[in-house]
Amino acid sequence: MSILKTQDLTIAFGGQVAVNSINLSIEEKSFTSIIGPNGAGKTTLFNLLSGQLKPTKGSILFKNEDITRLPSTIRTRKGIGRSFQITNVFPNLTVLENVRLAVQSQAGVRYQMIKHFRSYKKMNEEAYYLLEQVMMAKQADALASNLAHGEKRKLEIAMLLALKTELLLLDEPTAGMSLEEVPAILKIIEDIKSSGNRTILLIEHKMDMIMNLSDRIIVLFNGRLLEEGSPQEIMNNETVQNAYLGGLYDDHTA
């Protein structure tokens, strides 16, 4: 069964059509990767799916419900969680507080204003548990702004996991990371995948990582859906190779 569908999804910024009439159908509990050169519209597509942007045309169905006009807050509550390409944590809160906010949202603790936050033991424990999962427990009391880039990315993922959403949108989780930091993130993503109850959409540039993980791969180019298929099919596809090797790109700019 497909959990997420888009129909004719389009967004234009002025004359620039960033995402052009994309039809997607994402199977439940599948692992789909989205690839494409810079400016292909990958992140814009994510912004449309998670509600940061509203489409000019087209619709988005999540579990057969039209969510095209819903704000990001409601989409998160319905089960679409995302991580951000540019790390987007709360800089002046501690690592634990960052995760706890996500846990709090998931637990529905929203307007309690009298009890001290520390008396919500379960929430604290869960936040701590999630930090252990992403190997960040040691830095629980550090300010998020003092973290190294890779650690911020791990924090992002912990926050995303805390939301317990069915659909995870991972926007380049390894972007800007040094080589020794990548395996840790990869391990976390593999763990999520093998736990087997989430649907994952991943934007990534590291091809070997994508080939190993993905059930399906979607190739975007200039806002359009160029190809879609299994890793093998995409690997052997000539149009895709051209797009990535620069053939199409050069033609376009020339």
């Binding site: 709360f90 309690q112 009890k115 001290h116 936050f117 919500y120």
Partner: peptide, 13 residues
């Protein structure tokens, strides 16, 4: 009390 409650933490966020 207010700023140390769960809601207060959301305010900080």
């Amino acid at each position: 009390r207010l700023t140390n409650s769960p809601m207060g933490k959301v305010l900080l966020a």
